[in-house]
Design a protein around this nucleic acid. Sequence first.
DNA 1: CGTAGTATTGACTATCTTCAATGCCAGTGG
DNA 2: CCACTGGCATTGAAGATAGTCAATACTACG
Lengths: 232, 232
Amino acid sequence: MYRTMRTARRARCGTDVDCADCPSVRRCWGEKLPQGFGLHVQRQPRLERGTTLFAQGERFEAACIVVAGCLTLRETMPDGTERIAGFRLPGELVGLEGWSRGVHSFTATAACSTTVCRLKWPQRVSGSAALLERLLRKTAGQLDSAAKPWAGLPAIERVAAFIEDFARRMRVSDASLLLPMTRAEIGSHLGLAEETVVRALAQLQRSGRLEVKGRSVTLQSPPHRSAAFAAS
Amino acid sequence: MYRTMRTARRARCGTDVDCADCPSVRRCWGEKLPQGFGLHVQRQPRLERGTTLFAQGERFEAACIVVAGCLTLRETMPDGTERIAGFRLPGELVGLEGWSRGVHSFTATAACSTTVCRLKWPQRVSGSAALLERLLRKTAGQLDSAAKPWAGLPAIERVAAFIEDFARRMRVSDASLLLPMTRAEIGSHLGLAEETVVRALAQLQRSGRLEVKGRSVTLQSPPHRSAAFAAS
DNA sequence: CGTAGTATTGACTATCTTCAATGCCAGTGG
DNA sequence: CCACTGGCATTGAAGATAGTCAATACTACG
């Protein structure tokens, strides 16, 4: 059984990939899949930093799963201001929100070199109950996480919560991580000014809660092994 | 065809209901369903104001759809403070977030007299692709709305956005609505102090954007008829 | 080495929270 | 009927927090 796992090669771009053969299957679907399970996706060419996967207002075609890297979700408000709606990390779904409206409500651009797989979106979605169930479970998990708990917290706690959430979703093992986004982007996401994020990080460092050097962050208290997002 | 719609009676509590026969089918599922479509739910006894549908930490059993009224979602944080994670209005799903984790991550209590239907949650979820597809679409829509745009806005705009969002989700026709929650609850949800909500509402009234009298609010600019949440 | 993008720091100001007091209203019991 | 109570809403004043503006430092990259 493990033999096939071991010989699995990194999927090639643009090709049809059977998730059961992909080394990332555990991260994407929460478990290994039996051979021939039938979950197929299309590995997309690598997105270099700054390139966009889809843009706000574009017609919804298919959802994607992030395999590696990080996507930034940007939304332009009616008044022209832009805000960062969120980030998507490996194993997370992106773009499904556009399904019900028919168009994407935000732009997804690569925050760093990023790889995604495109879900096959059959005309008769109802055909594939297995895919639907997994997608639903995943979406429910992301919905759970979307209820941002940092609504009324002071800036320092908001930034701390963001870093901890990010670390958990990255499944960092050694408590150190590299942020793919700028301070200004973190601020836009949290509703804080860039300078406030800088000062909050400095304060967190002074109080010993984490170690910051540029974009690399080391958590002092090890990340919770909460399964909240793990299998979602 | 319409004959059956017209004679449809209000579903009785605790009984199995075929959504195709329910007058609320359009609000719940976005469209009329053909007779015998097979979407069945269980109408629950009416929840009086203050009673809870499920509590944070309880095992996930099934998701529900709100038919009438309003549910308040409360979350107790690790440090003991409580915050309002959101509200659920007629036609919206509640509780599905708990599916992936196995337990509910918040408590759902009735903000006013509220009726819900419990979705049948078969052991073999994969059996019913039609239900799954509808749930997925609905969940995707709520996920889209969950990306709350009032992160960095000033208090007045946050309150205005909340009221407008609420009105849209309530599908108010004559631009007037009755808020089922207190100012403090709105504040908890938006990350503002109760007094700030009061002052923001007063300011919005002064600037003519809406009319407030206690819990009844009248919008001056008619609500957008955006379909964002309509069919979700 | 110069440039562009990003990060940091300080000073000042606007906004929001907190605290405290008061008003309003519905329900309750004498 | 009416005082009393509790929950919610409102208002003012003072203080804390975060935003804004402006200057400077850092870093990767051509």
